[in-house]
Design a protein around this nucleic acid. Structure first.
Lengths: 234, 234
DNA sequence: CCCATTTTGTTCTCGCGTTCACAAACTCCT
DNA sequence: AGGAGTTTGTGAACGCGAGAACAAAATGGG
C-alpha cells in the first residue's frame, strides 16, 4: 500500500507551498509574455508578491531547476511547475448550479487556459435546463453520473444555493468524484480521500470588515484619548 | 499612537481565528434557523466543520461567552461574534468591473444579509455604463472618488481583468479605500495600512488538480509495483 | 588560472497555530 | 446538601511554516 515508485521518493511538498505554486506559475507566464527569458529568485518573488527566501525554499521542494549565479530559465521553470501541479494535462470539470455565479464560472476563460475543460453544466431547475451558457447547453442534474462516467471527471464545482450543497456533494462522491470546489456558503462533509476546497465571497469581506473595524476603533480610541488629555489640533 | 482604550486591552485575535469567525457565525445562524437555542462546542464545531478544541480556543479569544456544563446560547454568541467581526454595522462597498463575475457579485444576496451594501457598480467600459445590474445603474469608473466620498466607502471589490487590477487598486488607495477584495488573477501591490485579500478561482482548481494528480500517481505507482513484482488480481 | 561577484539551495532558529489534556464551573438527581 | 456527570476555558506540548543567514556553485574579468 505504502509502496512508491522511485521517482517520487522524497516528494512531500508542504501544503503551503502547493498553494503558492499556481501563483508562481502565473508570474512566470507574465514574465514570459514580456519577453523575459531568465529571472532571479528576487525578480520572480517580486512578481509573485512573496519574499525571495520563501520562493527559493518553495522551488527547492520541486528540485534544483535554477543555476547559481544566474537564476532561472523562465520557460523551463514554468514547465516544471506546470507539470508538478498537473496543469500540463487536461482536467475535465463539471459545474453544478447555473445561477449568477455558475454563469460567471462557465464563462471564465482562466479555466480553459490552465488545463481545465468544462465538460458539462448541470442544474436541478428545469427552467434553466436547455439554456446555452458559454456555448454549453445546461443539462439536468440527474445526468451527472452519465457525464462523469463518459468524460472520466474527477473534479466537480458546486455553485448551488447553500441548502443544496451537501446533497450535490454526496451525489458527486457517490459517483466517484474525488475533488470538489465549493462556492456554496455551506460546510460540506465528505469521506476520507475526497478533497474539498471552499471559496466564500462573503467570508472574505467579513474578514476585511473585521480589520477595517479595528483600524477605525484604533483611530477612535486614539482620538478619544487625545480629547481626554486635552490634546488635538488647534 | 499606541494608546488604546481599556475596552480592547488584551484583544489580539490571531489571524487564523479571525478567518474562522465568519464560519462560526454562519453555523450559528443555521442552528438558530433550525430553532436551536443552545449548543455545545461539539455541536457548533460539527456544524462549522472544525474540531471542538479549536472552536473553544477561538471563542476564548473573544471572551467567556459560554456556560460550563451547559454550552453556548446561540443568539447571544451569534451577536457577540457579529459585533466582533463588525457585521452589526453597515459597510458600504463599491464593485469595479462589471463583467461576468461583477454581475454575479452584484446579485449575490449574501452580501446584503451580512451587513454589506453595494452602493455603486463601476466600469471603465462605456458600453457597460448605464446598464442596470441588480437594480443598480453602472457608472463610469471616473466617478469612483465622488462615490467614495459621498458614502464614506472603506471597502472596494476588484472584478476587472488582470491588466486593470493594479491601476484600479492604485486609484482606490489614492482615494482613501483601505480594504480591497481582489478577484482579478493578478498580484496587486498596496502600501502599508491597506488590506488586500485575494480570491482566485483558477488557483483553487489548480490546487485540487495537484492533489488529484498525486492520488492518480500513487495509484499508478502502486499498480506498477504490483505488476513489477508479479502481484495483482488473478 | 585565480579571484571577486552573483545567485541558488539549504540549514537553523523563531513564532504561530493546532491539539491534547485537565482543572474549574455549572446542572441535575438523590 | 452533596456527589455524579457535563462542558467550558486554558496551560502545555508539538509540529509546521517563515525568514535570516550562509555555504555551494556558477560566471566573468584580469
Amino acid at each position: 500500500m505504502t509502496t512508491r515508485s522511485s521517482t517520487d521518493a522524497a516528494r512531500v511538498i508542504p501544503e503551503a507551498t502547493v498553494a503558492r505554486l499556481p501563483v508562481y506559475l502565473r508570474a512566470l507566464t507574465a514574465l514570459a509574455d514580456n519577453g523575459i527569458r531568465t529571472c532571479s529568485s528576487e525578480d520572480l518573488a517580486t512578481a509573485a508578491g512573496v519574499n525571495s527566501a520563501k520562493l527559493r525554499k518553495d522551488l527547492s521542494y520541486l528540485g534544483s531547476y535554477g543555476t547559481r549565479g544566474v537564476g532561472y530559465d523562465v520557460d523551463y521553470l514554468r514547465y516544471q511547475i506546470a507539470r508538478e501541479i498537473g496543469v500540463t494535462q487536461d482536467w475535465p470539470v463539471v459545474i453544478v448550479g447555473i445561477g449568477n455565479l455558475g454563469h460567471a464560472l462557465a464563462n471564465y476563460s482562466g479555466f480553459r487556459s490552465r488545463g481545465f475543460r468544462v465538460v458539462a453544466l448541470l442544474d436541478a431547475d428545469e427552467s434553466v435546463v436547455g439554456q446555452s451558457v458559454a456555448g454549453v447547453v445546461v443539462r439536468p442534474f440527474r445526468d451527472l453520473e452519465e457525464i462523469v462516467r463518459e468524460h472520466d471527471v474527477a473534479i466537480g464545482v458546486i455553485a448551488t444555493p447553500a441548502v443544496a450543497a451537501q446533497d450535490v456533494a454526496d451525489r458527486m462522491v457517490a459517483i466517484g468524484i474525488t475533488s470538489i470546489l465549493n462556492f456554496a456558503p455551506a460546510v460540506v462533509a465528505v469521506p476520507e480521500g475526497v478533497d474539498v476546497r471552499k471559496v466564500d465571497l462573503s467570508i472574505e469581506l467579513q474578514i476585511l470588515a473585521y480589520h477595517e473595524q479595528r483600524k477605525a476603533n484604533g483611530a477612535d480610541a486614539a482620538a478619544a484619548v487625545a480629547v481626554e488629555t486635552g490634546g488635538g489640533a488647534a
